[in-house]
Amino acid sequence: MSYFMTDLSGTYVEEPDEATMRTILDGLADADDEHPDVSLTHENGWSLRAFPSGELLWLLWENLDHADDPDASPRQLSGVSKEEVLRLFGLLATGDTAEIERLAGS
């Protein structure tokens, strides 16, 4: 399965390991209006975008391949710790979307 991350500058990193994911996520400390998020996208179309929100993060969970499908509308997860984001990124990297779907309230 293939996946990639996008850092704050928009640079793609193919199949990053957990340490690289953490480094990219740590980059959110420098987020601004022009570069507000980082993301992990799986080849199945599902994507998690992480945005800073004080000490915690909020996530946008969406399927980029089915953006026009009302049953696949983007959902938010608020107040998420960095460790939980890393865990969810790891699940998505393997294509395991069930736990993310559960947390996103689908």
Rank of each mutant, 00 (worst) to 15 (best):
M1S: 11
F4Q: 04
M5I: 04
T6Q: 12
T6D: 02
D7C: 06
D7Q: 07
L8H: 05
L8K: 05
S9I: 09
G10N: 01
E14A: 15
E15M: 14
D17V: 09
E18G: 12
A19K: 11
A19I: 09
T20E: 06
R22Y: 09
R22C: 04
I24K: 08
D26W: 03
L28I: 14
L28Y: 03
A29C: 10
D33E: 05
E34S: 13
E34A: 13
H35T: 09
P36V: 01
P36W: 00
D37I: 05
V38E: 00
S39F: 10
T41F: 01
T41H: 02
H42C: 11
H42G: 09
E43T: 04
N44K: 05
N44H: 04
N44I: 10
W46C: 05
S47Y: 05
L48F: 00
R49T: 07
R49C: 06
A50K: 03
F51H: 04
F51T: 00
P52G: 07
S53W: 11
S53A: 14
G54M: 03
L56D: 07
L56Y: 09
W58C: 10
W58E: 06
L59A: 02
L60E: 08
E62A: 12
E62P: 14
E62W: 03
E62T: 11
N63P: 09
L64M: 07
D65W: 12
D68A: 13
P70S: 01
D71G: 11
S73V: 12
R75E: 00
Q76V: 05
L77T: 07
G79H: 03
G79K: 03
V80R: 06
V80P: 11
S81M: 10
K82C: 06
K82M: 06
E84T: 12
E84S: 08
V85Q: 00
V85C: 14
V85M: 04
R87K: 14
L88G: 06
L88V: 08
F89R: 03
F89M: 05
G90K: 02
L91K: 11
L92I: 09
G95I: 05
G95P: 13
G95D: 04
D96S: 15
D96T: 11
D96I: 12
T97Y: 03
A98P: 15
E99Y: 00
I100Q: 02
E101G: 14
E101H: 15
E101K: 15
E101S: 13
R102K: 10
L103P: 11
A104Q: 02
G105N: 03
S106F: 15
